[in-house]
Design a protein around this nucleic acid. Structure first.
Lengths: 248, 248
DNA sequence: CGTGCACTTGACAAAAATCAAATTTTGTGG
DNA sequence: CCACAAAATTTGATTTTTGTCAAGTGCACG
């Protein structure tokens, strides 16, 4: 990634999302920077850069929500702790993503860094007054929320599938698209999360996820270089397996 | 419902959602009117009231999105048509809800009225300029979007459950809470949608949904007055079945 | 009042969950 | 750099559960 390609990845908060209203964009599915450099530097004045070690809990559901986070580098999982020590993963969050949504002043879910993490921390109080004074910023936030809403609906669609292979393929497809949208090399899909985490996300046991990967590999659909790197071999079969989530 | 209880249900666009930041509200989970009467009447100038017959398709995924809708009365299902004539239902929409979100200028899913429907139709062009000129309105929209995002995550949580009884119980719990939040009588849960629609929403076949209701009834957890009216008999067992989705 | 569609129910097959054990990978300290 | 311990992943055998398909029933709408 040359600086020219991603000029906004320097040190200031960033919001990534696909455009809401503009159609016929250069590359559909590409992510755009929603914030102008001016807006980003204005936000930077109320943000502080924070680091978390791999595995660190960033906040827990139910705690008072006094900060919102914006990922600079690393990956986060958002989850709801279940009664029986199991957890349902609601989302994986990548650079450019924002997390820390609250319900009635409390965090709606827990979050944990699954890789070393760097993120901006924005106090909600400051953010709130900033939002009320900047209509343009509000509009960008609306775009980002619509984006997340669609992602959540896509997640629900994935979960509604019954066949393990379909779910795994759709998960890989999602990761691939996110990776491409971020402008990272996409010859190979990188899986920052553990098999168990994938299972919690797609609604299967870790064992079933493992069998899913193996089955896809045996059929020659994918090739696993190692646990964290997968390559699509047979694109046709792959797309056929992944119940399409495109428009129409 | 006395007019005093719901003064904002008169004829102007309305946005219902639970508060985002205020905690310790009178009744947690209650829905609030996000828009002031002034804002509502301002919106009314660009809105037109439309009626749809039961079963009517309001718009299809992929069509140009030139209007957003705000339900006055009736129920809508939003769905994605699947390849094999099946459809995944992403949401049921009730009075106060808004629908018509677009991706790159096109509707992201299809919608159909499942009861007779009355709704405001707001042209996006007018709405867009209105949004850009009214920071307060934008903020309310943000709140509404956060609300929908949480609903979508809750839907995903429901779908991640494996036992049919759990899914059915969670679905009933959701309907009950929505009904209560709207201020409707909640001694009995009203199901405006068909069993098949419930199945598409919770990720089971209509047959499995039917068995689910029967099993709950046989266990004495619920009582079905008729196909569309259910009453919770054994609240304790009911809550135990429905994997809790409360904070913490 | 009849027809059609929605719902229910049954028998069977398919699929993944569960439980547990074997194996590989990762991280740590020498 | 290697050895070891801990954690993660894979695999196998079994069980539970729901999907599937089809037939039967009943409600609702014209």
């Amino acid at each position: 990634m040359t600086p020219a390609t991603r000029p906004t990845s320097s040190y200031a908060p960033a919001l990534g999302a696909v455009d809401l209203w503009t159609s016929g964009t250069p590359r559909a599915g590409d992510m755009k920077q929603l914030l102008s450099d001016a807006e980003r530097s204005r936000l930077a004045t109320i943000a502080s850069l924070t680091r978390f070690k791999k595995g660190a809990v960033i906040y827990r559901a139910g705690e008072r929500a006094d900060a919102v986070f914006n990922i600079v580098s690393g990956v986060v999982k958002a989850y709801r702790p279940g009664a029986d020590s199991s957890e349902h993963i609601t989302a994986f969050l990548f650079p450019g993503d924002v997390f820390g949504l609250s319900v009635e002043g409390l965090y709606a879910n827990s979050t944990k860094a699954i890789t070393p993490l760097t993120a901006y921390q924005l106090p909600v109080s400051a953010l709130q007054s900033r939002l009320l004074n900047d209509a343009g910023l509000e509009f960008r936030v609306i775009c980002k929320l619509c984006h997340e809403l669609r992602e959540a609906q896509r997640h629900a669609f994935l979960l509604s599938q019954h066949r393990a292979l379909t779910k795994v393929a759709m998960f890989l497809q999602m990761l691939e698209q996110l990776q491409a949208a971020r402008g990272e090399p996409s010859a190979e899909i990188y899986l920052p999360m553990a098999r168990a985490d994938i299972g919690e996300y797609v609604g299967m046991t870790a064992a079933a996820v493992s069998r899913g990967f193996r089955a896809l590999a045996k059929r020659g659909v994918i090739m696993t270089r190692d646990l964290r790197h997968v390559k699509i071999i047979d694109r046709t079969s792959f797309e056929k397996l992944a119940a399409s989530y495109g428009p129409s």
